[in-house]
């Protein structure tokens, strides 16, 4: 049943994109961005699975992507704080 996961990844991608477009709150938009990045990672790793072993290049790519995602989230949250502080 491991062939189920690429489709779950696609569904996460579309749902995250919807949340990114629909939601008003900036924090909510950032969480949706994280969801659709997770969908892309899930698709990449589950699609490159062969003989009960994850592809090493895909795994390394996604590991890099996770760390960069954390950087994006942290910087984005700090900018959101700045916008809330400036509105005051």
């Amino acid at each position: 049943m491991l062939s189920l996961y690429p489709f779950v990844g696609l569904a996460l991608f579309v749902l995250g994109l919807l949340g990114f477009i629909l939601k008003e709150s900036l924090v909510h938009k950032l969480i949706s961005l994280n969801i659709f990045l997770s969908g892309i990672f899930l698709f990449l790793v589950s699609q490159s699975l062969s003989y009960e072993k994850a592809d090493s290049v895909a795994t390394a790519l996604v590991l890099t992507g996770l760390v960069v995602t954390l950087g994006v989230s942290a910087f984005g949250l700090m900018l959101i704080r700045a916008s809330y502080g400036a509105k005051r």
Partner: peptide, 26 residues
């Protein structure tokens, strides 16, 4: 692919610089 890792560490360091520029007021 060590060059990718090097650039990734650079990106994370750049994010930290951005945070330190913005954060003192908040």
């Amino acid at each position: 692919r060590a060059l990718d890792t090097l650039l990734e560490v650079g990106v994370v360091l750049l994010a930290l610089m951005g945070i330190q520029v913005v954060s003192p007021h908040f």
